[in-house]
Nucleic acid binder design. Structure first.
Length: 279
DNA sequence: CGATCTACCTGATGGC
DNA sequence: TGCCATCAGGTAGATC
């Protein structure tokens, strides 16, 4: 579910809402969400008594810094939500797997119906060998400065289709199925273009489309689709879906040329595009 | 190496 | 009303 804009929206709100708070106690229901820890106690004991000192994001991962130097790593998978509760009395949603109780009152809850997401506590210097998928993340399109010419060199080094490359977290960190389609439309490029076939102008357009689309989506607090499964930490839906040019718009007129948006299946997932505007 | 499939899960939706 | 198939913002691992 959540891609870079949704995770960044949550990061900014968490920075205001939970940084400076101390964890009094932790409730973990079941082991699946905290599967990197062998026991519940092994997870909860690393959080209890700790103060949260900062919140960072790497790609789609949230990293909550603790005052003992450790990190609480959160990956939301397809259906994970972090929700700020002002008190324990607020009704608990089904599929609530982890609850952090703060000393000053209030909670942070992790809810995840499909349980693809996970939480774990680790030491920063052990990230590299304990969490290879995080250590091997590609560059973050908003955090890491890169010239479009360097970006072009990286595209030319790969011999793969454009969309899978944009979504490859080891190449670029944070882009998923929605934003890959939106970025490709904004750049006027098809999902199945060979990454080493782009002209200098197309590379520049793609780089610009990537940065602008992601920034725009953050301004709109991310995308919530029909099921409204993406919610921010206050339980509110995002607004960027109203700005989508192609994603989930099969058969609707292209906002640029009026021809119907097409939907194709590739690699088991849907891609949306305008056959006229994307070449 | 790249492309494609499978598995991990629950829940919503649509056809019959 | 129910039953079944299909689909969903992610990722890793197997296979060809």
């Amino acid at each position: 579910m959540p891609e870079l804009p949704e995770v960044e929206t949550m990061r900014r709100d968490l920075d205001k809402e939970v940084v400076g708070r101390r964890v009094k106690s932790v409730e973990a229901t079941g082991l699946r969400t905290i599967r990197r820890h062998k026991t519940k106690k092994n997870f909860t004991s690393k959080l209890e008594g700790r103060k949260i000192t900062g919140v960072e994001r790497k790609g789609k991962y949230l990293l909550l810094k603790l005052d003992d130097g450790n990190l609480l790593v959160v990956h939301l998978g397809m259906s994970g939500q972090l929700l700020r509760a002002k008190s324990a009395k607020e009704p608990t949603l089904k599929h609530t797997h982890v609850v952090l109780n703060f000393t000053q009152g209030g909670q942070l809850r992790y809810v995840d119906p499909r349980t693809f997401g996970e939480l774990f506590v680790t030491q920063p210097d052990e990230l590299a060998h304990e969490v290879p998928e995080l250590a091997h993340l590609g560059f973050d399109p908003l955090e890491d400065v890169m010239s479009w010419t360097k970006f072009g060199d990286m595209l030319h080094e790969k011999k793969t289709k454009l969309k899978p490359l944009l979504m490859d977290q080891r190449f670029l960190a944070g882009i998923g199925n929605i934003y890959a389609d939106e970025i490709l439309f904004a750049a006027g490029l098809r999902y199945d273009r060979d990454s080493n076939s782009l002209t200098a102008q197309e590379i520049r357009r793609l780089y610009r489309a990537m940065v602008e689309t992601l920034q725009d989506a953050i301004k709109h607090r991310g995308s919530s689709l029909a099921d409204e499964q993406y919610r921010d930490i206050f339980g509110e839906v995002g607004d960027f879906q109203s700005q989508h040019k192609v994603y989930d718009r099969e058969g609707e007129p292209c906002r640029r040329c009026r021809s119907p948006i097409a939907r194709v299946k590739t690699g088991g997932r849907s891609s949306f595009l305008c056959e006229q505007c994307q070449v």
